Simulated assay, not measured.
Amino acid sequence: MPLGKRQNGARTALRWLLALAYGYAGWLHVVRPAPFLAITPPWVPEPALVVAATGIAEIAGAIGLMIPATRKAAGWGLAAYALCVWPANMHHAFANVAIDGETLSWWYHGPRLVLQPLIIWWALWAGGVTNWPFRERGK
């Protein structure tokens, strides 16, 4: 079902916002990996390689969201990515991992963990994989 002009405009704006966020986060993974290495759970093999690969995946997903031919695949990929990095976010929170000598409170960790499903949905919606919960009026 096609969306109305207002919803398409919102989707475009939020797609750009998500792409910018993932692009910036991916760039940080590559150029400043230390904080991401710190929150990587100990069971992850080759953490430096994984952090670099996740940064490249974020950048590729961000670019993919902007290209209509790859948009859905990028949406699926970024949603899967957000699901797969959830354990690092949990490790960061529950192990109280310090980054640059500083730990973050539950005012950061609580919302971050709870909002992860929203980030997954956002990737799917921005990628045009789903229109849920929006639908055309009268349908």
Rank of each mutant, 00 (worst) to 15 (best):
T70V: 06
P87S: 12
G128W: 06
W106P: 01
T130Y: 03
W16T: 04
F94H: 12
P111H: 10
G138W: 08
L3R: 13
A98G: 00
H109Q: 11
G4N: 14
A38E: 14
P87G: 10
K5N: 09
T12A: 14
W125Q: 08
A79Y: 10
P42H: 11
A126H: 00
P41W: 15
P133R: 05
K139P: 00
G61L: 03
P45E: 10
Y22L: 12
P117M: 09
L20Y: 00
W16F: 06
G64C: 04
W132N: 03
K139I: 10
L113G: 09
L14P: 01
W125T: 05
P133N: 02
L28T: 13
P2C: 05
A38S: 11
R11I: 00
R71A: 10
W121Y: 11
L17V: 03
L83P: 03
I63E: 02
V44S: 06
L49K: 10
M90S: 08
W86S: 08
N8M: 10
F94I: 07
R137P: 03
A126P: 03
A57P: 00
P33Y: 14
R15L: 04
V44Q: 09
R137E: 14
A10R: 11
P41F: 14
T70Y: 01
A10K: 10
G55L: 10
A95D: 07
P68G: 12
V31T: 13
R32E: 12
L3F: 13
N89E: 04
E136H: 15
T54E: 12
A13I: 04
A82S: 15
L14M: 09
F134S: 04
L78H: 01
I99M: 13
V85I: 15
N96I: 00
A98R: 07
A62K: 04
A88G: 11
A98Y: 05
T12M: 12
H29C: 09
